[in-house]
Structures are given as structure tokens and as C-alpha cells.
Design a protein around this nucleic acid. Structure first.
Lengths: 156, 156
DNA sequence: TTAATACCGAGTAATTTAATAGGGATTAAA
DNA sequence: TTTAATCCCTATTAAATTACTCGGTATTAA
């Protein structure tokens, strides 16, 4: 019941991108360096984010990535589902209709449990917008007296 | 972000035990057969449940397992945490104080996300009692015209 | 004494994770 | 027009985890 490094690193990368966005695209190598993640691995993660329409890429020299939408319109749920797949606790047809229906769905009791867990997780992450995290990040960094230039690496 | 078979099988086993409990202990082999789970594997799962004080065992011939408490006092959260470990989405000191504190806790933004997810999962599973599932199970089985003797195996 | 049961620890195949590695395509700038 | 910076894509791999199996020991009712 743990997120993988895909979700953890990927969310941090999107926050980094959102915090450091300006007029120009942000190179992946910069995000990777600030976040202490290998460029090669981060490439795989950002590819998922691009496929999900969360970021756009600009190819060539001076290229990089930008948010595909305002950060107010991107939820943490959108980001985590892009990186991790669905956030359901089990693969169950009742939660995810692209699963093959369970032969004992009519007498299944645990499906109510899975539905409650699933709904609570998705409601929680859909209720946090990227803009909230950007604001919090700026607040916390200002409080710690850390400038954008020398911000230290995150671990979590 | 998925539960393992430990949580899925184990929860089904506890529900089975609760539904089929009477004056006598229920042998693991019976639960295993009804639920279509190997006895050897189920042994490992029920050992965790016993260690957590959710079930008690009676050794020797005609022995088996019984609930250690009334089903009204056992939450799904108790059961799943016994089987899966904590239900937090990440190993983070803010959620689980036996983790070593994160060196960048002061500037960590994602911890707010993990806390919200963690709380929502734990609140959800702690709000469902085993007795609720037993009642639901009996209702569903009666509706399907299935007697206790020939109940079919569950898959989920 | 026997059979039914719980208890225990070691081993293992398959899968997933968390990367690494290396090359190709595109484009701004020198 | 070349170069360097950048995104893009696929293959490989070591380590960890999962989901078991296997074989034995201990206990106790009948």
C-alpha cells in the first residue's frame, strides 16, 4: 500500500517545474539536479506526465518542459494517477470497469471495503491542487530563508 | 498503491471466521477450503492476525481459531494494518514516528499530501467494523439463496 | 496411541521496482 | 552550417518483494 518512487519523484518534479516556471521552459536536467534524481529516470516519469497532458515539452536547444495548464487546474490526483496508474487498493471490476468482472461479484462483501478506500483516496488527492503546493512551497522556503538559487535537495 | 494478497486473503479469512463462528473453533483448513486459499499460505497470514490480538488459537485436535474480540470491536483497519503493516502511502517521519526524521522536513511540501492521503485511508478503514461485513455477508448470501454448506469460493 | 490440528522456518519462482545505458531526433544559437 | 543542448525512445539489469511451497515440530482431544 505504498506509492513507488514514480509517484514520489514525479510529484516533486512537477512541483519543481511549477515553482520554477517563468517565461522559458525548464530543462529536465535542472529539475533532476535540484531534486537529486537521475535524468534518465526522470525522463521516464515525465514521459508519463506528458502523455497524460499535464506537461508539454519544447524540443531542441533551450527547450524543456512547461505545465500544460495553469497549476490551479492540475490536481495532485491527476499527477499521481498519471505516474502510478489508478489509485485503487485492488484491481476490482466494481472500481475499474476495464477489469474483467469478478465471477462472484454478487456475493462479494469486500468490494464495499475497496470502494470506500478507493473513494477516500481519490477524493483526498483530487482536493489538493498543484497551485496549493506551489504556494506552500514558496511560503516554506521564504520562512527558511532559502533563495531559489541555493535551495537544498529534498529527500521525501 | 495496491494491497497485496496478504490483505485481501486475510480480510476474507477473518470475515469467514466471523461468519462461521459458533461454540467451536474453526479449523484453518476449513477457511482455506471455503476461500480457495492454500492452507500453508493462510497459516502465515493468520499468524499476523494472532500476533495483533485479532484472533486466538486453540491447539490440538478439534482446535482452530476464534475471534479474540466481538466483531463489533474489530475494525477493518485493525485487520488490514495487521496484515499489511501501516497503511501510509510513503515511509515518512511525519506519518510514522518510528521512521528516522527526514533531513529536509522543514522544507518538505509533499508531506502535507502524504498526510492527507494517510488520514483518509485510515479513517475509511477504521470506520468499517467486522460486524458490518458479517451482516452484509449474511444478507447477500441469503439473497443469493446460498446456504452455509455450499457457499462458493470468492475471488476478490 | 492416533489423528487432527496449530506452529515454525527455509527455500523459490515470478514479478515488480528502480534504476542504468546508449543511441536517435530536433532546434536555437554560434 | 555546424554544434551543443535538449527531448525522445528502447533495452537491459540488479535488487527487492510477492506469493507462494515444503517439510518438519508441538500439542491435545478422542
Amino acid at each position: 500500500m505504498k506509492l513507488t518512487t514514480r509517484g514520489r519523484y514525479g510529484l516533486r518534479a512537477v512541483i519543481d517545474l511549477a515553482v520554477n516556471n517563468g517565461d522559458e521552459a525548464v530543462a529536465l536536467s535542472q529539475i533532476a539536479e535540484r531534486q537529486g534524481i537521475s535524468v534518465n529516470y526522470l525522463e521516464q516519469l515525465i514521459a508519463k506526465l506528458k502523455k497524460a497532458g499535464i506537461v508539454d515539452s519544447i524540443r531542441g536547444a533551450q527547450g524543456g518542459y512547461v505545465l500544460a495548464m495553469p497549476s490551479e487546474e492540475i490536481s495532485v490526483g491527476d499527477i499521481l494517477r498519471a505516474l502510478e496508474g489508478d489509485l485503487n487498493p485492488v484491481d476490482c471490476h466494481e472500481l475499474n470497469s476495464n477489469e474483467t468482472p469478478c465471477s462472484n461479484s454478487d456475493i462479494c462483501v469486500t468490494k464495499y471495503v475497496w470502494k470506500r478506500i478507493s473513494d477516500s483516496i481519490n477524493d483526498a488527492v483530487d482536493g489538493i491542487m498543484l497551485s496549493d503546493l506551489v504556494a506552500e512551497s514558496k511560503r516554506v522556503q521564504a520562512e527558511a530563508g532559502i533563495t531559489q538559487a541555493n535551495q537544498s535537495k529534498q529527500i521525501c
